[in-house]
């Protein structure tokens, strides 16, 4: 899905952009695609895709359809389809996804479980 940082620009329908100077605290539930470049604490759930930028800092549970993961994440991640972990990623938590790619240099500290692709929507 997301091949590089520039791929973010290809997400046509972005519902939410959390910019680098923004800190979101609480339970964020969305329906569409979400870009996170800033700080997020709590939980992030969406039926769309998630793009987590290289400088993002997240202390939250993440649930989404597909994901490109960069930055620092403390919390469990559940992805229904493909999860792409790029070199900048520092993940401290368990990961569940149907398909996974990890770039050289990425850190993944946690249990990794591969699941069959789920068709049901994420309950928010």
């Amino acid at each position: 899905m997301f091949k590089s940082q520039d791929e973010k620009e290809k997400i046509k329908e972005v519902e939410t952009i959390i910019g680098p100077s923004i800190k979101v605290k609480g339970n964020f539930n969305g329906q569409g695609n979400i870009v996170v470049e800033g700080i997020l604490e709590g939980s992030l759930k969406t039926n769309g895709d998630v793009f987590i930028g290289d400088k993002a800092k997240i202390a939250a549970i993440i649930e989404a359809r597909e994901a490109r993961i960069g930055g620092e994440i403390t919390g469990n991640i559940k992805i229904k389809k493909h999860m792409e972990v790029v070199a900048s990623a520092r993940i401290f938590g368990d990961v569940e996804c149907a398909s996974l790619s990890v770039e050289r240099g990425a850190v993944l500290n946690g249990k990794c479980t591969m699941l069959p692709e789920r068709k049901d929507e994420i309950k928010s």
Partner: peptide, 27 residues
């Protein structure tokens, strides 16, 4: 009541129903 947003740099906040400015991002 679900979440709060804190802005860490000076800037401007717009809550938009009908956009009267043309400098909004394409998305």
């Amino acid at each position: 009541k679900d979440y709060s947003i804190e802005i860490m740099e000076p800037g401007e906040i717009d809550v938009i129903n009908l956009s009267i400015f043309s400098n909004l991002p394409e998305k």
